[in-house]
Design a protein around this nucleic acid. Structure first.
Length: 200
DNA sequence: TATGTGATTGGCT
DNA sequence: GCCAATCACATAG
């Protein structure tokens, strides 16, 4: 699909990504899900971003790529996946925090070692889909084992504060987190379930 | 349900 | 050695 919606504005891209279908083909297994939760990280001006003030290290090097790149980092032994937006001068991206499982649910259950809560958190969904840092950091969307395509349309988008950045001063209050309102496959702050899981 | 806390790993400085 | 955009479980109410 056309990825140019990720070229200009990261906050808009984070909302446009809701409902897109993410598919991986890893270790011979196909898994997929619809994006339910995203967070925008606005690079140089955003205290919560890895590239705040232009910080550039081996770890966050991938943030300085063109839109459509994939940035994966590890923390506490978990992998988190971002889709890069804009260009090399704007190290911005969107963290994928939640998916509604679609294909390959049995494989996700096997990878996770449990039957539920497969993709309702950034570390959980990468594990379910087989995504790891070493083989996948720096790849590009739709040019390898990680792909996105058209999916569903959210009936309503909810914005809220980002999760897990409580020591980043004013940045903690930015409403840069977006969820499909009423969808149960989100990591926190669930609201009352909506009909059709919040899809149109 | 909401909040708190312990576990724990990889990656940089 | 220190830090982290997490997870899972325990406890209280």
């Amino acid at each position: 699909m056309d990825l140019s919606f990720m070229k200009e504005d990261t906050l808009q891209a984070a909302q446009a990504l809701l409902g897109k279908k993410v598919t991986t083909v890893i270790d011979g297994a196909v898994t997929s899900g619809y994006i339910t939760e995203t967070e925008a990280y606005l690079g140089i001006e955003d205290k919560a971003a890895h590239a705040f003030q232009g910080r550039r290290t081996k770890k966050n090097e991938m943030m300085y790529r063109e839109y459509g790149g994939i940035y994966i980092y590890t923390m506490h032994g978990h992998h988190c996946m971002n889709f890069i937006t804009r260009d090399a001068a704007s190290p911005e991206g969107v963290l994928i925090r939640g998916l509604e499982p679609a294909d390959g649910i049995e494989i996700m259950q096997e990878r996770r070692g449990r039957m539920d809560h497969l993709t309702d958190g950034p570390g959980k969904l990468t594990k379910s889909m087989g995504i790891r840092r070493d083989p996948h950091n720096g790849l590009r969307l739709n040019q390898g084992p990680i792909m996105i395509s058209a999916g569903k349309e959210p009936a309503a988008i909810r914005e809220s504060k980002r999760i897990g950045i409580d020591n980043k001063e004013e940045a903690v209050d930015y409403l840069y987190r977006f969820t499909v309102c009423g969808n149960p496959y989100v990591s926190k702050d669930r609201v009352l379930p909506a009909v059709n899981n919040g899809w149109k």
